[in-house]
């Protein structure tokens, strides 16, 4: 009896651990997009930036043998990809929806091109943090004290983003630019510079999320390995109504859906695998509907200038 109980707990711990790892890339990408959207920019290119981050992170890590260099390369690659979007959508005042789609198509293609020679290359493992004694605690031990460093980084990043947006002058400027660009401009803040920096931050975070996929989650490179996570991250930002705290909860929820369907596929519950694979996407649509139907609630936190281009009158 005691033995059975132990088995169940071990399995539960395993599931919870994988949920956290599935939530982490979503959280990274969504935090970056949240900041960009708070500044009034809707960047639909998250999927492309993640893909570029994933491949550059993997390529740099496996050529140098140093995963840290891989992480840095992914961040830089994400920012470079984001700057393409920033130049076209902000300085050339192009439609943000279309530019974001361009970035996704471009990023997915470019990642495939770069990654061609890395298909099948084994990845470099990143050691897990292991705090002695504490990580041996039942169930919560490894969950809280034995994750990989990215998980802690994502949580810290979420808290730091909340603190930046709502407790600092810089965050106030970002929100001002996103809520009323004309007024922020009249007050002497540079709308375009603020937005460009926010977009770059979004790119860095998406690149990091991509690196997590190719360095930790499935330590290898495969074509189209982001599998729509960038789009789910975009939906998460809406789902979280642009609040970092809710983003963490949302990422865990979506992580849980994608992991539970994998477990269900492994156990074989008589439902064709394709229908289980659909679940994360269907849940995303349902979540969007549930959140969006309450227009009043949504409009409280929606950046008022989201997606609207800005040109200063000279």
């Amino acid at each position: 009896m005691r033995q059975r109980f132990g088995d169940v707990m071990t399995m539960l711990e395993g599931i919870l651990l994988t949920i956290v790892t599935a939530a982490t890339p979503l959280l990274f990408a969504a935090i970056g997009e949240l900041v960009a959207e708070r500044s009034g920019v809707l960047n639909l290119g998250v999927e492309g930036m993640m893909a570029v981050g994933a491949v550059c992170g993997f390529a740099a890590a496996s050529t140098t043998g140093n995963p840290l260099i891989g992480v840095l390369a992914a961040i830089i690659a994400g920012m470079l990809a984001a700057s393409l979007f920033g130049i076209v959508a902000l300085f050339f005042v192009a439609n943000q929806n279309a530019t974001g789609v361009a970035l996704t198509l471009f990023g997915l293609g470019l990642s495939g091109l770069i990654g061609d020679s890395f298909v099948g290359t084994p990845g470099i493992p990143i050691p897990k943090v292991d705090i002695p004694v504490f990580s041996d605690l039942p169930v919560v031990g490894r969950l809280i004290f034995g994750e990989d460093p990215f998980v802690y980084a994502a949580v810290v990043l979420a808290i730091a983003t909340w603190w930046f947006l709502f407790k600092t002058r810089g965050g106030l400027i970002v929100r001002a630019v996103g809520d009323n660009a004309a007024s922020a401009h009249a007050l002497g803040f540079s709308v375009l510079r603020t937005r460009f920096l926010a977009v770059l931050f979004g790119g860095a975070c998406a690149g990091l999320g991509g690196a997590y996929l190719s360095l930790v989650y499935t330590p290898q490179w495969t074509q189209a390995m982001t599998a729509g996570r960038g789009w789910i991250a975009l939906a998460l930002v809406v789902f979280a109504s642009w609040l970092p705290g809710r983003l963490v909860a949302g990422a865990l929820l979506f992580g849980a859906v994608s992991i539970l369907q994998l477990h269900a596929q492994a156990i074989g519950i008589g439902i064709p695998s394709q229908f289980l694979s659909m679940l994360p996407y269907i849940v995303t649509v349902i979540a969007l509907v549930v959140i969006s139907r309450n227009r009043a609630l949504l409009s409280v936190n929606t950046p008022a200038c989201l997606g609207r281009p800005f040109v200063a009158d000279t």
Binding site: A98, L105, L113
Partner: peptide, 14 residues
């Protein structure tokens, strides 16, 4: 690589 086409198409849209 067959991905070249997609890169071209994405770049063209930019």
């Amino acid at each position: 690589s067959d991905q070249t086409t997609q890169v071209f198409q994405g770049m063209l849209l930019f």
